[in-house]
Design a protein around this nucleic acid. Structure first.
Length: 433
RNA sequence: CGGGGAGUGGCGCAGCCUGGUAGCGCACCUGUUUUGGGUACAGGGGGUCGCAAGUUCGAAUCUUGUCUCCCCGACCA
């Protein structure tokens, strides 16, 4: 992509409304723009990052045996009246009336809808287990949206729902998602600690939140320091049951679940930290299948309510969380797996025909190799290009100017380490492929 | 919802107290210059001051109402 024609409105100064780093950088690097409190437009660069995160989440869901569907954002109130949550949910639910005076709502989550789908179409234990997920926009009318995308009112969430014949099978589905989450966050290069959590409005007795440690986090965590021995950011391979059991046996609690009186961990071994909740998994059994009459015929011929769980990942929130975890004073530092482009090609002298020719040539070669390149071919000063490229945070910068070209050299800069290397054109291209 | 702060060109801000129809930096456009970390100079375009009502000869400035945004708290799949 040529920057001269790309929509990437960067800001030199910090917008006054943004307090935390990720919010500031998302505005400054041209990832998002706010339209009203907690509601944002995703600009090209931000959308590319979100799509990449979404894809990693999707791949791990599929790998765990879940099947992707797409449910609507607008739901009929009847389903929620049936489960009893229409009244229970309160003002966080955005209620809408259509032209026929029918009560509708913008979905904050989809348990009711997916339970309805299930009961209408699945009748036998032979069709179980099933896991159905979608990646869809949600709306929660938060009392106070804040921190940019991190606590927005509209947000993109992956939510998966499991259906099993009994509680034991349900626990297996739960653990499959537990593993999928460990792998998902590890692939994103994040250390996400699974902590036991309150089940809140969802209900049930088993729940883990996946928390990324960050000072700007809204949750408070207490955990056994032994958890730090797990290399959580590296769990991208097969994860055996032993690891799961060990990890789940260690003390790790979200604030509401932590009780200093009964905590078994010695105070010297107890860590406390702030965390950003990026995932939350629940096993709630028959809470919805009972109230909504979602039953299947068991092997013995009797009808039994299905055992269910639900599993959420805050996809849009992860964009912010990744920035909180990966930045410096100059801007964002994207991990390569989610970077909007892999390489930023900087033409230091667009008016120099030789230099521009060389850059055009590199751009074509890299593009032909399938490498995502953001090519700064704008007619502005070198300083601005360096500053923008650092701000936007692409993993590699390929800096090309007349001075180096005289010696047939270009400069390759690693955004994360700041290391620079002078290479021949050919070597630079092969290093990036 | 309780407490606090703020709405003046795209962004950051000054002006408001002591009313006289708007200013600075950045960004933008033109030209020259410069070019390896936001180059310099000159010229230029753009706002009626969140909205409404009121006071006044006259309101960005005073009064009242209202909307929006931000921060702290409560809240929170």
């Amino acid at each position: 992509m040529r920057l001269s024609s790309y929509f990437m409105p960067t800001l030199k100064e910090n917008p006054s409304e943004a307090q935390i780093t990720s919010h500031r950088l998302m505005l400054r690097a041209g990832l998002i723009r706010q339209t009203s409190a907690g509601i944002y437009i995703w600009l090209p660069l931000g959308l590319r990052v979100m799509r990449k995160i979404e894809q990693i989440v999707r791949e791990e869901q599929d790998r765990a045996g879940a099947q992707e569907i797409l449910m609507p954002t607008i739901q009929p109130a009847e389903l929620w009246q049936e489960s009893g949550r229409y009244d229970a949910y309160g003002k966080e639910m955005l209620r809408i009336t259509d032209r026929h005076d029918r009560e509708m709502l913008y979905g904050p989550t989809n348990e009711e809808m997916v339970t309805d789908l299930f009961r209408n179409n699945v009748k036998s234990y032979k069709d179980l287990p099933k896991m159905l997920y979608h990646i869809q926009w949600k709306f929660r009318d938060e009392i106070r949206p804040r921190f940019g995308i991190m606590r927005g009112r509209e947000f993109l969430m992956k939510d998966n729902y499991s259906f099993d014949i009994d509680a034991d099978a349900g626990r297996i589905s739960y653990n499959k998602m537990y593993v999928a989450y460990l792998r998902t966050f590890a692939r994103l290069g994040l250390v996400a600690i699974p902590v036991r959590a309150d089940t809140g409005a969802i209900g049930g007795d088993l729940s883990h939140e996946f928390q990324i440690l960050a000072e700007t986090g809204e949750s408070t965590l207490y955990y056994d320091k032994e958890i730090e021995n797990f290399d959580l950011a590296s769990l991208t391979g097969e994860i055996d049951m032993q690891t799961i059991e060990k990890l789940q046996s260690l003390y790790a609690m979200e604030e509401e679940k932590h009780d200093p009186e009964t905590c078994p961990v010695a105070s010297g071994d107890l860590r406390t930290a702030k965390g950003i909740e990026v995932g939350h998994i629940f096993f709630f059994g028959t809470k919805y299948s009972d109230s909504m009459n979602a039953k299947v015929t068991g092997a013995d011929g009797n009808l039994v309510p299905v055992e269910m769980g639900s599993y959420g990942v805050g996809v849009s929130r992860l964009v912010g969380a990744l920035i909180e975890a990966n930045h410096d004073d100059n801007g964002i530092i994207w991990p390569e797996v989610v970077a909007p482009y892999k390489v930023g090609l900087i033409n230091l002298r667009t008016k120099d025909d030789h230099c521009t020719k060389a850059c055009d040539d590199i751009y074509q070669k890299l593009s032909a190799l399938g490498i995502e390149v953001l090519y700064d071919d704008r007619d502005i000063g070198a300083g601005g290009k360096f500053a923008d490229m650092d701000l936007v945070g692409l993993p590699w910068q390929l800096i090309v100017g007349p001075r180096g070209l005289e010696k047939n050299l270009v400069e390759l800069k690693n955004r994360a380490t700041g290391d620079r290397e002078e290479l021949s054109l050919e070597d630079a291209i092969s290093r990036l492929s």
